[in-house]
């Protein structure tokens, strides 16, 4: 497998984690995703970028069954997703997701946010769940805030809680939808640091982000999207430094 083949997974392992095959999605009559095909390898870090409205969120939400799609197929570890069925146990056990605006549960403490899934879905006892959650909170550096409520934390801290909450369910794949876009510049770094550390553990990650520094540092491949289509896929040096399409160049000039 060579890097010159842009559609092939460039992960450290060659087994594909996610295979997207000719995906088409419409919002009413609006064609939001057009023949999107992409394969994400196991342990690969994939960064998705593109201008606003290009369908990045839509794509990542289709992977996670938050949106229905009309044509094509998505396979996760070889298992095909049902096209319309909204909640798929396997998918939610395999994938965690981090949202742009955190979506923490405001009525639960930080710790309870993280232990909720463990106690109710994984049938862990209170103490086991607590230990797991505290370990994760420690990893993201906010174990001292475990008893606070989300409303009492800064944006960066909230996003780190959200990451711990997802990790608590022990996913194989993590999806990030612009995790730092709602944050002040000073907080962006603390969240990115956590993501870099996570990438180093060998997690498969699909990140929608405009943090090109992050992309250059950890991404195995970068995807550039425009109008619901994938324009370019390739290793970061190639897409970010020597883009082959004028549209990519234009976009990069804008955000860099």
């Amino acid at each position: 497998m060579t890097l010159s083949d842009p559609q092939a997974p460039a992960g450290k392992l060659s087994r594909p984690a996610i295979e997207i095959d000719n995906l088409n999605k419409w919002f009413g009559s609006y064609h939001a995703l057009r023949d999107v095909s992409l394969t994400v390898g196991e342990q690969e870090i994939m960064v998705v970028c593109g201008p606003s409205g290009s369908g990045k969120s839509t794509l990542i939400r289709c992977l996670n069954h938050l949106e229905e799609y009309q044509e094509g197929r998505i396979c996760v570890f070889g298992q095909e997703l049902a096209r319309d069925q909204k909640s798929d146990r396997f998918i939610h056990q395999t994938m965690g997701m981090v949202f742009q605006n955190f979506n923490l549960f405001p009525h639960l403490t930080v710790l309870q946010n993280c232990t909720l899934g463990l106690t109710w879905l994984r049938k862990k006892t209170e103490n086991e769940a607590r230990d797991i959650a505290m370990g994760l909170l420690e990893r993201v550096g906010i174990e001292h805030l475990a008893d606070r409520f989300p409303g009492q934390l800064s944006g960066g801290q909230q996003q780190r809680v959200a990451i711990s909450r997802s990790l608590a369910m022990d996913p194989k794949i993590m999806l990030f939808d612009e995790p730092t876009s709602a944050l002040d510049p000073e907080m962006v770094k603390e969240v990115l640091d956590v993501m870099v550390k996570l990438a180093e553990t060998g997690m498969t990650m699909v990140c929608v982000t405009h943090e090109m520094q992050f992309a250059r540092q950890v991404a195995d491949r970068v995807v550039f999207m425009q109008d619901g289509e994938i324009v370019e896929v390739g290793p970061p040096e190639q897409v970010l430094l020597h883009p082959q399409w004028d549209r990519t160049r234009e976009f990069l000039d804008h955000i860099l």
Partner: peptide, 27 residues
């Protein structure tokens, strides 16, 4: 209750009744 709460619960894998009982109704 914003849609994000339903989506966050769904990505955790909580089903309809758990989502309602633990996340949505208390709020």
């Amino acid at each position: 209750i914003p849609d994000g709460q339903y989506e966050a619960a769904q990505t955790l894998g909580l089903g309809y009744w758990l989502t309602m009982g633990l996340i949505i109704l208390p709020q």
